[in-house]
Simulated scan of single mutants.
Amino acid sequence: MDSGNHSTITEFILLGLSADPHIQALLFVLFLEIYLLTIMGNLMMMMVIMTDSHLHTPMYFFLSHLSFLDLCLTSVTVPQMLENLLSQKKSVSIDGCLTQAFFVFSIVGIEAFVLSAMAYDRYTAICYPLLYDQMMSKQLCWGLVWVSWGLGFLDALINTLVACNLDFCEAHVMPHFSCELPSLFSLSCSDISINFTVLVCSAI
């Protein structure tokens, strides 16, 4: 860490996508429409899968969870982006930024694990068609989903806890519309070698 004096940073400035007020208004309308369509599309997908008994299969079970995760991911990032597009002060506190980064990291991780479970489901259906119903039981499907959630949250928790020890000095402008862990590393005046190693191990 630098030995000189530096002010303590309590918040970050998110630059967003554009500084032009007219473009920001257009972007707000565009992303609001996309966000509402995303919410409606995912809710309809989940509702159809729940109500139609023909879709009560492992593949659609995992698809409904992916829809829910997509709903969560957009709700973690887009509302703040929409707020920043309309507000003059485009700032977020360090705690708020770390919280958002945790949820983004965990949801993306859970999605990756659920997609892996779907790949195993398709492998089982193709390679063992006669044993498929026995192998992909409801208990196993729920177990794979719970393991996905557990591993995703654990992975995000480890990375976020390590990031909580970072010190932030003079640089506090983030050229993004949401908080992500790699963008926090570039603003830190601490040694980020441990953070980077943990992040790479998580990715692998």
Rank of each mutant, 00 (worst) to 15 (best):
S3H: 12
S3A: 08
H6W: 11
T8P: 08
T8Q: 12
T8F: 06
I9A: 02
I9L: 10
I9D: 03
T10N: 12
T10W: 04
L15D: 11
G16S: 10
L17M: 15
S18D: 14
P21W: 00
Q24W: 03
A25P: 11
F31V: 07
L32W: 08
L32P: 13
L32R: 13
Y35P: 04
I39C: 11
M40E: 08
G41E: 03
L43H: 06
M45T: 15
V48P: 07
I49M: 06
S53Y: 03
H54C: 02
L55Y: 05
H56R: 09
P58Y: 00
M59A: 11
L66Q: 09
D70H: 07
L71N: 03
C72N: 03
S75W: 07
V78C: 09
M81V: 07
E83Q: 15
L85K: 12
S87Q: 12
S87C: 07
Q88N: 10
D95P: 02
C97Y: 02
T99D: 08
F103P: 07
E111H: 03
F113Y: 10
Y120W: 01
R122H: 08
R122P: 03
T124M: 05
I126V: 12
Y128A: 08
Y128H: 15
L130Q: 14
L131C: 11
Y132A: 08
M136S: 07
S137Q: 09
L140Y: 01
W142D: 09
V147D: 05
W149N: 04
G152C: 02
D155A: 15
T160L: 06
T160M: 05
C164K: 15
C164V: 12
L166D: 05
L166Y: 06
F168I: 08
E170F: 14
A171H: 13
H172C: 07
H172S: 10
S178N: 13
S178Q: 10
C179Y: 09
P182R: 02
P182V: 03
S183H: 11
I192Y: 06
S193Q: 06
I194C: 08
F196V: 14
T197M: 12
T197V: 05
L199H: 11
L199M: 12
V200C: 06
C201W: 11
